[in-house]
Amino acid sequence: MSVKTLTIDGKMVTGIAGETIFNVAWNSGVRIPRLCHVGGVSDVGACRLCLVEIEGQKKLMASCMTNVEEGMVVRTNTERLQSHRRLILELLFAERNHICAVCVMNGQCELQDMAEELGMDHVRMRYLFPKLEVDTSHERFGLDHNRCILCTRCVRVCDEVEGAHTWDLKGRGVNSLIIADLGEPWGQSDTCTSCGKCVQVCPTGALFSKGRTVGEMRKDRRFLKYIVTAREKHQWIR
């Protein structure tokens, strides 16, 4: 295992070959913003919040998809990156109906956190106000498309950790929607094991447990590390 030394925001840090900039940064206390990344499943580099500047490269790179290299000089929080991240959040808030005040995840939501952390205090573009469904057909969980940011964490955790691949995306572009099986109501899915992993990894209130009202939903995804370590190292660490 070869060790790579690099600079992140002026700080000398080390990582192991094959590790992403994102992981190395977080391990050394540099919290790069993210929405689609969740530890324990594969990365897709879709939310673009974790983009960083790498010296000598013209393009901004998704830190969750880029491995560390010896001598790399990485900047994670320049003014340009901050302004891009705020604008991306504005796009997200304008895309669907994110009404924090009436959301089960109010106060716990990663999207809400991101807006606060990155100083996105109002949306300068038009809200799109799409008319979207809420699927409460499952006996324990609900899916509110209004709050979905299409990060596909649920798709990945269901496929990679649970192995069911109940979820996927249908359509494309701004019309993409999370679907269970052939788009039938979640409660009628043949493949869903009702394990609830998707609910726990969902960053917003799009997937939620029934019976929770505004601000009451709590999510816990420690199970991911537990399962992944168990599977890879045969160690069951609680």
């Binding site: 496929d159 069911a164 691949h165 109940t166 979820w167 996927d168 995306l169 249908k170 359509g171 494309r172 679907i179 269970a180 099986d181 052939l182 788009g183 043949d190 493949t191």
Partner: peptide, 25 residues
């Protein structure tokens, strides 16, 4: 049709959601 997609999914051993995902992309 949904039936057609379901049977294709079964024959190709794919999750149904992936088949609909591709068909609608």
């Amino acid at each position: 049709t949904p039936d057609l997609l379901k049977s294709i999914a079964r024959k190709l051993r794919l999750p149904p959601s992936r088949v609909l995902g591709v068909a609608t992309f």
